[in-house]
Amino acid sequence: MTLPLTVIGGYLGAGKTTLLNRILTEDHGRRFGVIVNDFGAVNVDASLIANHDGDTISLTNGCICCSATDGTAEAIARIVKRSAEFDHIIIEASGVAEPGKVARNAAGFRLPLDGVIVLADAEQLPDQAANRYAGRSVLAQLRQADVIVLNKVDLPSPARLEETRALIARHAADVPVLETEQARLPYALLFGVGRGAAVAAWTAGPEAAHDHAAEYVAELLERGPMSRAAFEELAQEQMEFAIRAKGHVALSDAPEVRHLYQKVGRRWTLVPDGGWDGEPSRTRIVTIRIREDLPNHRHARQNMWRVSGAPFASGVDRDRTGVSTQSDC
């Protein structure tokens, strides 16, 4: 069993630890194996710790947190050995690490990459990018992101915030940017819909109408078998602004092969994923995009959205909420 891998990167003060503390403590229904640089930064209420054993803290929400001080490879190996206990693995890249390289090193463990999320400090980013020692690393982190979380947007002046946005647009033009405060974001945007690799389960059928409290829309897109070129065109048209998309694809030149399509930010993959196991050979993809009908969600700059993370903040991230069906065949 393979666990999807998310790498969380970002420079000092960007909010990685805030985000990880949420993941380790909130009741989100997903079991994450989290590899951090140092437990010291993880500040978890003792009542939420089920067990603390040397290199590993087990949390009451089913997550565990491993320290990577003796090497990330060893920590990954420890979690992979217990992969049945988890849905997803997260590696915190250190403040100057290139998260793309961290993700690639993990590729040797054959963990499918779910995404590289890079947090950035809305107030400090321009200074950090100009820092003599760290500047190159800060910019490399932005370039390697699948999704950038621009955090602490409540702190800078409007002019400073615009400076930060312009810097991101200059160095990571195609990367979607989610703006927030206190690292609050819906889990579906960070880690996709559903648990682990159970793709079929969450593309199973039409769902309830929009939940207007949600800031994102999850839509099911269904098609019959199509050529690869037609699929790529569809992906371009239908999913350009999707933060994430995931599902099975039926290609007309190999209808017996089920393909797995995954998109996060600007990066997508389409890989053979076994057969259809008696299911109809159909393309079924769930896309997740930011709702544009809420005030302030879409900014002047393309690819930048403001989210407040309300569902996240409430402690419940309803994975299946707001899935609607878009089917024209």
Partner: peptide, 30 residues
């Protein structure tokens, strides 16, 4: 794996012996 080397026997996909970089990391970790 990306960023790794698994040297293969000539005319075959069978690993020849040498593993480098990301292909070595899981072995190192275990």
């Amino acid at each position: 794996p990306e960023g790794g080397v698994i040297l293969r026997k000539e005319g075959s996909n069978e690993p020849a012996g040498l593993l480098m970089e990301t292909a070595f990391l899981p072995i190192f970790g275990n």
